[in-house]
Write a protein that binds this DNA or RNA. Structure first.
Lengths: 110, 110
DNA sequence: TTAGTATGTTCAATAAATTGGACACGAACT
DNA sequence: AGTTCGTGTCCAATTTATTGAACATACTAA
């Protein structure tokens, strides 16, 4: 079966933006594409498609590259990241483990 | 050649966090995993691995799923996203188009 | 200007993700 | 209680991304 997908504009814009942020970050740090690719453990070809904002590359790789050039996805450091993680774990235990018909609104900051 | 990769903690934490945010968002909206998967045009299996914070899934798909359940990656709407995009385009034209490799120091502060 | 690199971009071979199916288990509803 | 449905998780077949090589172009420093 063919795997044809569509991506919303938000997604495309977000990816395009991320790619540009990575490119700017890389250039500002004086790294060549090859250097950054080596550091992230990927090929220059893949980095190229990431900087182009392609939808295909693996999340892990994209996040890694972003981290290397100082682009923080959640605008916070690792400590804060871990903290939010822990907090969400709590929250997840409070939510119903299985969605039946219609669960509703809980609200939380962040 | 086998593709063995390593992921920094920041990346792992970010992915873990994102997965949890997606799961919380989905649950709060009363969607089943299958519903969200259908909506994103992916299989439940893939959504599962996204919610688990796997590094493998495609960025595009992960971003799409996030968007559907209301998780904003850059903490802003599509308008702002497009604006930042345009701004970065300007910035990119100002930066040198090519980086000279000079064995320069890069600080990995993450 | 020229030599030496960095980048844009393509492509076939290879490695890996995605898929639907399957199953057990647990939670929610009557 | 029993039953239905959502989830956790594994799998082989299929679809896809990744890679390294290759090349042209474009930029930077001498």
């Amino acid at each position: 079966m063919k795997r044809k997908r569509s991506y919303s504009r938000v997604t495309q814009h977000a990816l395009s933006l991320l790619g540009k942020l990575i490119r700017v970050g890389r250039t500002e740090r004086g790294m060549t594409a090859q250097e950054l690719a080596d550091r992230a453990g990927i090929s220059r070809t893949t980095l190229y498609s990431i900087e182009r904002g392609s939808t295909g590359p693996e999340v892990g790789v994209v996040f890694e590259v972003a981290a290397i050039v100082g682009v923080r996805l959640f605008q916070c450091d690792e400590r804060t990241l871990a903290m939010h993680n822990a907090h969400l774990d709590e929250k997840l235990t409070l939510l119903p483990q299985s969605v039946r018909s219609s669960g509703k609104e809980v609200d939380d900051d962040f």
